[in-house]
Design a protein around this nucleic acid. Sequence first.
DNA 1: ACGGTTTTGTGCGTGCTTTCACATTGACAA
DNA 2: TTGTCAATGTGAAAGCACGCACAAAACCGT
Lengths: 232, 232
Amino acid sequence: MEKVISTAVIKRLPRYYRYLGELRKKEVVRISSKELSERMNVTASQIRQDLNNFGGFGQQGYGYNVEYLYTEIGKILGLDQEHQVIIIGAGNLGQAIANYADFARRGFDIKAVFDVKPELIGKEIGDVKIRAMSELKEYVAKQKPDIVALALPKEHAVQVANDVVSWGVSAIWNFAPVELRLPKHVVVENVHLTESLMRLSYNIRAAKNKRDADAAQKATKEAKAESAATKE
Amino acid sequence: MEKVISTAVIKRLPRYYRYLGELRKKEVVRISSKELSERMNVTASQIRQDLNNFGGFGQQGYGYNVEYLYTEIGKILGLDQEHQVIIIGAGNLGQAIANYADFARRGFDIKAVFDVKPELIGKEIGDVKIRAMSELKEYVAKQKPDIVALALPKEHAVQVANDVVSWGVSAIWNFAPVELRLPKHVVVENVHLTESLMRLSYNIRAAKNKRDADAAQKATKEAKAESAATKE
DNA sequence: ACGGTTTTGTGCGTGCTTTCACATTGACAA
DNA sequence: TTGTCAATGTGAAAGCACGCACAAAACCGT
């Protein structure tokens, strides 16, 4: 039986992976959890504990071999295999995703882009043509893409999600601001930009409140010092 | 002194907000935590506890008033005020953000877009012109934007982030795949698409492993039943 | 070959998050 | 007005995640 890994750990793994990739490029051979922790925003203990969920990658007195750890985390993340990705929606966001070169480097192959708008169909994005939505069903049935990215208005996202799932897709990268309700065997990863922006907005206000509170506290402190000085 | 709200709660607030917005459009007047929880992916108890961090918005025996709760959460998230946003980087991602209408609706005003590429400068995106990076410093000093969105290659993101912060910016929406190290009064919200995709990849593999394990278990079970049947 | 040093892997305690469960409050109908 | 029912607000338990601290292991200089 596979051990279940907590989502908290999974969230950090890509960060480790990215950072190790940078070290690898700089031809750093070994790294200790302490050194890693100083540059990323985690404690050394947490790094060790996270990695230990998957087995002992390190060696006492030495640390971790960068190259080895990098490929191991890559395997854990499933980056040792190619993923075929199709994008539904060739608007600005869909195009941005299609053109983002980083993905291809990690083994995510953008295979096709679909849209309803007749004026977009046939146009080239990156190195794939935009296809008509009417071709989607046949394409999915034949090519069996691993991942479907939804970059379309929320009004249509739910319907399209249900469709592609019924045609056999089991992983969805959802950019539409809706909660998709899909069978539990389907894996969904949401990117909710508006929510992200709202969190930023909240934190801006929270930071402002804190500054104001600090300033007020300082003011009363000074006032106290003032009155104490007057008393004397 | 302001009570500190945990980030776990803040993460969920925009979801509540979005969902309440939808209910409001459907002219739903009241909703109970139970009803809400059934449609979103949270327990009723958690909704009540989350909301109680900010005061009692509901009424026993009745539930929550959709309109009221919507505006209250809006206030908490700081959506009752306008935010001036500028975008650095007019590539695909920068353009996608600039054109995403949802933001404007929430009070996030895209005021300007900057890029280094001469061929892009002067071009219109949405209803703003792309400006030269050389104008950035003066613009920031004069217009004091509330939020700077970084949609440029990671090589330049760090430098630009440091620059705009030194010019007085205190909130950054970062799309570049780097951890920005900025003074602690600066609020940073990261959108790391590659990490998101890697998590999806992990979950695809995890789901596959689970299916295989379940299949194997079922097989041995059947084998046992078989041998038991043979014994008799 | 050996001893000091480095650094992992891990048991355990602490604090935060989530869920449960229920007393309390207010709505709504008769 | 009164009784019943619905749903909140909240104390307390259960469940998790995180960080500390240290024993065990391997490195490295002498």
